[in-house]
Design a protein around this nucleic acid. Structure first.
Lengths: 146, 146
DNA sequence: GTAGATTACTTTTGTTTTGAAAGCAAAACT
DNA sequence: AGTTTTGCTTTCAAAACAAAAGTAATCTAC
């Protein structure tokens, strides 16, 4: 994926980066579904092809939305983590989810959103998601250190 | 553009619809840049190809994000207007813009966002954008009626 | 320690989508 | 009546996507 910015519009520039079928799905899987290794993404029910995944992970790393780490006790498995820049997309995802829930259910009736996610509780929900993510990362790090 | 929902995830379903290079750009141009006719979109500096535009307008209409109208005094020019569903994407665009401004400037230095758009003033800004859009639509309608 | 499995890719080979350019019919100006 | 404008559609080359197979490095079980 060769990212080139079309113009100086902030909206269009964001779309240049994340306006495709997979980039935001990967961010969502990291943020909300605890996916962090290549295998996690490939084996998910959304089933991204491995070449596309490889390409998008590289792009996300190049733009500093994620960082690649290895655990000290395993030289092989790469762990992908959201950076601050990546976590900054949480409000975008939340707004997408709310819109989807309100306006897309009629076309895809199975859509089901968390009870906790309402327009009123939006800001709290965003904070909670980010806090949960960071807590999970910390827990993983401690589990390895022990 | 053949929209098919991959799964029941609300986030992914939204991406199935608007996760491409042009759909959200068109919505942005309608909402913020007063574009409303086929020509307006084709002639914009973002220069969408007419076949892609035609396809996306059909999709947006099929999913009721926009509606197509004609002015009574002109049988030819189609006027495309955002519906409630389409206007509902305003918060998504605003969050994209804020994220872009905060995190993409280093890669695309020319990005410039309105002074009025800050994290604090977000909700007001969303309301203002929508109110301005609706006011403009009403003004157009009155201009024709007179 | 070595055979087999796993992980994170890359390569190959099609298919689909995109986009530039040209074409076209209906309507609207002149 | 002739030209221009508008809103498309068609054509075709290029790029992106995706399924499948391949590969190298590492890990795991015996």
């Amino acid at each position: 994926m060769n990212v080139a910015f079309r113009c100086d519009c902030p909206f269009t520039s964001a779309i240049d980066l994340i306006g495709d079928r997979w980039t935001l799905v990967i961010v969502k899987q990291m943020l909300l579904e605890d996916k962090k290794t290549f295998k996690d993404f490939v084996r998910s029910n959304e089933a991204i092809a491995s070449n596309i995944l490889s390409d998008r992970l590289k792009m996300l790393e190049a733009f500093q939305l994620i960082k690649k780490e290895k655990f000290p006790n395993n030289k092989k498995i790469n762990i992908y983590r959201l950076t601050e820049k990546g976590l900054g997309l949480t409000p975008v995802l939340v707004e997408l989810g709310l819109w989807s829930n309100a306006h897309l259910r009629e076309f895809n009736p199975e859509i089901m959103i968390s009870d906790q996610l309402t327009h009123e509780a939006k800001e709290d929900f965003i904070k909670t998601i980010i806090a949960n993510y960071q807590a999970k990362v910390n827990a993983d790090t401690l589990a390895v250190a022990k």
